[in-house]
Computed example of a mutant assay.
Amino acid sequence: MTRDIALLTNPAAGRGHAHRVQDEVVVRLRAAGHEVTVLAGADEQESVDLARKAVADGVDTLVALGGDGMLHQAVQAVAGTSTRLGVVPLGTGNDFARSLGIPREDPLGAADVVARGAGRRIDLARTGERWFATVMAAGFDAAVNERANAMRWPHGDLRYTLATLSVLPRWSAVPYTLALDGVERRVDAMLLAVANTDSYGGGLQIPAGALPDDGLLDVIIIKPTSKLEFLKVFPQVRTGQHVNHPAFERVRVRSVTVAAPNVIAYADGERLGALPLTVECVAGAVEVLV
C-alpha cells in the first residue's frame, strides 16, 4: 500500500553524512512504493514548523532522520495525532531507537522498518506545551548531557562516559521537592530522571525496566553516595544491574512535579529549561513504526 511519507532531516546529523544517507533512504522508500517529501528546516523552529504543516496537511507518516534531537522535533508535530512516526537514526545517542529495537547503525535497515509499516502505539511525556519521548534528566544526568553537548570529540557512547567522569568530581547531592501523583516528598539525590523509555545518554540504562506503553512514568532517584561508590557502580548502568543497589529507587506515576534550585532539565537530549517542571504521561499518544 502506497503511503505519503514526510522525511524530516538534519543536514548536520551523522557527522555530515546526512545528505548522502537521506538520498539513499528516499530511494529505498520510493522503491517500496511510497511517496516521499523531504523536509529540511534551517533551524529547529523551522523544522518543527515544517513538520507540523505536513501533519496538518494529512501526511500518513513523519520520519525523523537524525539523532534524538531530530526525533524530539518530530514528536512536537505528531503527538496526539493520527500521523505515524518513523525513525532513521543518525545521531550520537539514538536512545529512542535503542529502546524500541529500531536498527541504530543501519540507516537502510531502519528505512525498511518504515517501509514495512508495523505500528506500535506508545506513550509520550508532556511538560507544558513541550513533548518528549525518552527521558527527562534533572540532575547529575542533565549536567552530563550539557557537558556532552559541548564536546566535539569523541563520537558515540564514549562521549557520555567521558562527560560523566568530567562532571562527577564537582557534583554534590541536590535537594528536590517532588509531587508524585499529587503526594509531596522531599529528597536529596545525586540523580533524578523522569523516564518513558529505558535508555538515555547513549545507552545508559539508568531507568532499566521502564516501559513506553504502560501509561506511567518512571521517576528514578539515585540517593546520595560517595563518589568512589558511584564510580564503582557506574559501569553497571550499561546492563541495568545498578537497580539492585540500595541507592536506587523507582516510583511509577502518571504525573510528577520536580523542583530544585539551580537545575536545568534536558529531555531527548534537548534543553527544556529550569526546574520546577510538571511532567505528565499521555498514554498511547503516538504510533511508532517498529
Rank of each mutant, 00 (worst) to 15 (best):
D4V: 00
R15H: 14
R15S: 14
H17V: 14
V26R: 13
R28N: 08
A31I: 01
V36R: 00
V36H: 02
V36L: 10
A42L: 13
R52F: 04
R52W: 06
K53M: 13
A56L: 12
A56R: 14
T61P: 01
L65S: 02
L65E: 02
G80S: 13
R84I: 01
L85G: 06
V88K: 09
P89D: 10
R98P: 06
L108G: 03
L108H: 04
D112Y: 02
R121Q: 08
I122W: 06
A125F: 04
E129H: 13
F132L: 06
F132Q: 06
A133N: 06
A137L: 07
A138C: 12
G139W: 12
A150M: 10
H155D: 13
L158G: 00
R159P: 04
T164M: 11
L165Q: 11
S166N: 12
P169C: 03
W171F: 11
D181A: 15
V183I: 15
E184W: 09
E184D: 10
L191G: 04
A193K: 02
V194M: 10
N196R: 00
D198H: 15
Q205H: 14
D213N: 10
D213K: 03
L217T: 09
I222M: 09
K223P: 04
K223C: 07
T225K: 00
E229R: 14
F230C: 07
K232L: 15
F234E: 07
Q236I: 00
Q241Y: 07
H245D: 14
V251W: 15
R252Y: 02
V253S: 10
A259N: 05
V263P: 10
I264Q: 14
G269Q: 05
E280F: 10
A283D: 04
A283V: 06
G284M: 07
G284H: 04
E287F: 03
